[in-house]
Design a protein around this nucleic acid. Structure first.
Lengths: 221, 221
DNA sequence: TCCTGTGAACATTTTCACAGCA
DNA sequence: TGCTGTGAAAATGTTCACAGGA
């Protein structure tokens, strides 16, 4: 992916993908301070990696001591742009969509699902936790009214491309796509991240067969 | 990750992760032959990347012509180790588990879910497509009897670690973990791939904010 | 003394450029 | 001529090693 960071150095994509993992560890920590060794261990990365990642954004720590947890949490949230919260729409209220809505409701509000839509009249109007499934025909209106910037796509594959186009037209900036088809290949202005169970399982099979041990580690997943 | 390939060169992890994407395109292709340009375009990678990936395994194509689709499909399936099928257990029959079981039933049998288990008596005995949810207490027996080598973990986070340990003890070689906790960090013999919605959404938020366009690509899901 | 911050070495992955075969 | 196969170059990412402040 192409990326720039106006001032200072360019931040590696890989660093950005590790920040949410650090954030989770920090939010579960009771201590006021944490060292790069402890944070790295808990998040599954080396201590050098942790220090280097933070150093891209400035000197966050104190030599001989470590990092202030509260400060780090604030900074990471600011860097990721989730300090004001991020509003998310889930498109498709089937099993997968329902699971994802519930999951985000059980976790803190760094990214908050504020709308769930579906095309099925039997599903529209039912509740998922504190949310009511709305009519997918109102997708554009909901995106605008609630200032939604990201979407999670959990519709059947035959419906995925059209739904993605509508989301892009409505102004959505990023889509997490669970349908096993590629969408919006001609719309570089929308970031699409694909998550595909079958592809993951097939790749895992290779490493199983090879007898190769170890963590395959996060998505990039 | 560390990896070796007895004979010939070592195969990059990144190549392995692209093979399933190529495979999907090829299985949907009607033509007998395909060029690296066409395959790359459909799978979302450059033509050089496609050629280089296949070249790690030998000369698969014909200069001036392209690649035989049927041959490529056979080779990729053999390389990934899915030519004999891979047996998968889904642990946790909630919304997410149910969605994943259905999804794999709707797609060809490169990786086949042959067991779903849960601890909830109200769920045990119910059907998901052609499968019946079984008692999680029988996990070890099912793994052995059906020669299951991989598992998908969709239990609540508080139950994930214990479930993963049982899977590892039962001989499972790889786990796709959807719970937002790290599991089996002390068991290098089991490959764990984590898929975490919240982490993905948070990372996407950065790229949205930065106004940076483009595909974020694969999961590495 | 301890732990951060960081240049430099190393490793990996992608892109380029083109030779070579059908 | 068209498209593969592949070294070489470039880009990207990680680990090492240690200087330096608290």
């Amino acid at each position: 992916m192409e990326m720039r960071e106006g001032r200072s150095r360019r931040i590696p994509d890989t660093t950005i993908r590790r920040l949410p993992a650090y954030l989770r560890v920090l939010e579960l920590t009771h201590a006021d301070r944490i060292t790069s060794v402890a944070l790295g261990k808990a998040a599954g990365y080396s201590s050098e990696q942790v220090r280097k990642d933070f150093a891209y954004f400035g000197a966050f720590g104190t030599r001989g001591v470590g990092y202030e947890v509260a400060f780090l949490v604030r900074e990471i949230r600011r860097i990721l742009g989730i300090d004001q919260g991020v509003k998310v729409m889930v498109v498709g209220a089937g099993h997968l969509g329902t699971a994802l809505v519930r999951y985000t409701q059980n976790n803190r509000g760094d990214a908050k699902v504020v709308a769930v839509v579906d095309v099925n009249p039997a599903v529209i109007g039912t509740s998922i936790g504190s949310l009511v499934v709305e009519d997918a025909r109102d997708l554009e209106r909901l995106v605008h009214e609630r200032q939604i910037t990201m979407a999670v796509l959990t519709v059947p594959d035959y419906a995925a491309r059209a739904a993605a186009e509508r989301l892009a037209d409505a102004g959505i900036r990023a889509i997490l796509n669970f349908a096993p088809v590629s969408v919006l290949t001609e719309r570089p202005e929308v970031i699409v991240k694909n998550i595909d169970l079958m592809l993951e399982l097939q790749a895992l099979a290779y490493f199983v067969k090879g007898g190769a041990p170890g963590e395959a580690e996060d998505l990039e997943a």
